[in-house]
Simulated assay, not measured.
Amino acid sequence: MVAGLLYVIGLIAVLATIVVAGYGAPGLIQLVNTTLDTPGADLVATLIDVARLLQWAVLPFVGGLALMGLGRIVMLLGAINRALRGNA
């Protein structure tokens, strides 16, 4: 029960982070395209700026993945426990 809840919470965190980051993606793509089209522009600086604009998304994304992984580990341990006891 708890394992499923952990998994669902992690899944919601990851999906919500992707949706919110994707909502701002067209502006970031336009920024990179403008930099690529401009002669003599510093592409590395632009990519660093894009990374700075998306740094907020790292913690909820990785945290959601960690919760999903923890939920799966607990599910696996519960299945192993039931199998060793002989309960299906």
Score class of each variant (00 low, 15 high):
Val58Asn: 15
Leu84Lys: 13
Val2Tyr: 00
Gly64Trp: 04
Tyr23Ile: 04
Ala51Gly: 05
Ile29Val: 05
Leu70Lys: 08
Leu59Gln: 10
Val44Phe: 13
Leu77Glu: 11
Leu53Ile: 13
Tyr7Glu: 08
Ala13Trp: 08
Gly27Gln: 09
Leu54Ser: 03
Ile12Pro: 05
Val74Tyr: 15
Ala57Gln: 01
Val19His: 04
Gly71Arg: 06
Arg52Asn: 11
Asp42Trp: 01
Thr17Trp: 03
Tyr7Ala: 07
Leu65Glu: 08
Gly4Thr: 02
Ala3Phe: 11
Phe61Asp: 02
Gly24Ala: 03
Leu28Ala: 09
Leu70Val: 09
Leu43Ile: 05
Ala83Trp: 05
Ile12Lys: 09
Phe61Glu: 05
Val58Thr: 10
Leu31Trp: 06
Leu43Glu: 02
Arg72Ala: 15
Tyr23Thr: 05
Val74Glu: 12
Leu47Gly: 02
Ala16Phe: 07
Leu47Met: 11
Ile48Gly: 13
Ile80Ala: 12
Thr46Tyr: 00
Asn33Lys: 13
Asn81Met: 00
Leu53Phe: 06
Val14Gln: 11
Trp56Asp: 03
Ile9Tyr: 09
Thr34Gly: 10
Ala21Cys: 05
Met68Gln: 07
Val8Met: 14
Trp56Phe: 01
Trp56Ala: 10
Asn87Ile: 01
Ala66Cys: 12
Ala45Cys: 07
Ala21Asp: 07
Leu31Asp: 12
Leu59Pro: 14
Leu31Ile: 14
Leu70Pro: 00
Thr17Cys: 07
Ala66Ile: 01
Gly10Leu: 14
Ala21Phe: 05
Val14Ala: 02
Ala66Gln: 03
Met1Leu: 06
Ala45Phe: 14
Trp56Asn: 13
Pro39Glu: 02
Ile18Val: 14
Met68Phe: 12
Ile12Ser: 02
Phe61Ser: 09
Gly27Glu: 07
Ile80Ser: 05
Gln30Trp: 03
Tyr23Gln: 05
Leu59Ala: 13
Ile29Leu: 10
Gly69Trp: 03
Arg52Met: 15
Pro26Ser: 01
Asn33Trp: 01
Phe61Gln: 07
Gly22Leu: 15
Val2Phe: 00
Arg52Asp: 06
Ile80Met: 10
Ile73Ser: 10
Met75Phe: 09
Ala3Val: 06
Pro26Ala: 13
Leu84Asp: 05
Gly22Asn: 03
Leu11Ile: 08
Arg52Ala: 14
Leu31Tyr: 15
Leu59Thr: 09
Met1His: 04
Ala66Trp: 08
Ala21Gly: 02
Gly64Ala: 12
Val8Phe: 10
Leu43Ala: 06
Ala79Val: 09
Tyr7Thr: 10
Thr38Asp: 09
Asp49Phe: 01
Thr35Val: 11
Asp49Lys: 14
Asn87Cys: 01
Gly78Ala: 07
Gly22His: 00
Gly27Pro: 04
Tyr7Cys: 08
Gly63Thr: 01
Ala25Glu: 15
Thr35Ser: 12
Ala45Leu: 15
Leu65Thr: 11
Met68Arg: 09
Asp37Glu: 12
Val32Asn: 13
Val14Lys: 13
Ile48Arg: 06
Ala83Phe: 00
Ile48Asn: 03
Leu70Cys: 07
Asp49Val: 14
Arg85Lys: 14
Arg85Met: 13
Gly40Ala: 08
Thr35Asp: 13
Leu43Gly: 00
Arg52Leu: 00
Asp37Cys: 05
Val58Tyr: 09
Tyr23Trp: 09
Arg85Trp: 04
Gly40Pro: 09
Pro39Lys: 06
Leu11Thr: 02
Ile18Trp: 07
Gly10Met: 05
